[in-house]
């Protein structure tokens, strides 16, 4: 069994979790807290600088690993990188036409709802966006965990990146309503 900081490792090993896109969030949370309870800088605030420095580095690493595994898109990106697959989110813009069309319609709908200051419409768009994101994530689980089809998975990550940007726009639409 490989875990902890003593051997070269990946984020899954750090938390003692199986390397799988499908993930038990409760278990991840438990392992995260158990690790932070050991390495958090608050535990060594009274110790010499050396220990404080190591604690900060380790606590930072545990936080980074936790954030990566907790977010489906970041987890997928990370798992693909472990397989040597680049998701090409900046370079590969060849998306299916219907997907791009749908994205444009989404954005227009968000902009319209924001203009009309229609909180209900934004709420509906948000629900649809979450639904769509959930479907993409379910497909990712199949492609990564069962079929090991990493090229298709990378395409799904690129689609999820669009959904992530859409979520940001919905968020700022809410902010606009507030102000």
């Amino acid at each position: 069994m490989t875990q902890g900081f003593d051997t070269p490792q990946n984020h899954f090993q750090l938390f003692g979790l199986a390397q799988s896109f499908q993930l038990d969030n409760a278990q991840l949370e438990l392992a995260f807290r158990a690790l932070q309870a050991q390495v958090h800088p608050d535990k060594s605030a009274h110790l010499p600088d050396t220990e404080q420095r190591i604690a900060m580095q380790r606590s930072t690493l545990v936080n980074e690993a936790y954030q990566t595994l907790r977010s489906p898109i970041r987890r997928a990106r990370y798992m693909l990188s472990l397989q040597g697959v680049d998701t090409q989110e900046e370079t590969n813009t060849a998306m299916p036409l219907d997907f791009l069309m749908a994205q444009m319609e989404w954005r227009e709908a968000v902009a319209d709802a924001q203009q009309a200051r229609d909180a209900e419409a934004i709420g509906q768009l948000e629900a649809r966006m979450k639904d769509e994101t959930g479907k993409l994530e379910a497909m990712l689980a199949i492609k990564i965990d069962s079929e090991h089809d990493y090229a298709v998975a990378a395409g799904l990550v690129r689609k999820l990146r669009f959904m992530e940007k859409l979520a940001e726009e919905i968020d700022s639409a809410y902010d606009e309503l507030d102000s």
Partner: peptide
């Protein structure tokens, strides 16, 4: 620290 982490 490694020892205590494994223990944890």
């Amino acid at each position: 620290m490694d020892k205590s982490v494994s223990l944890a």
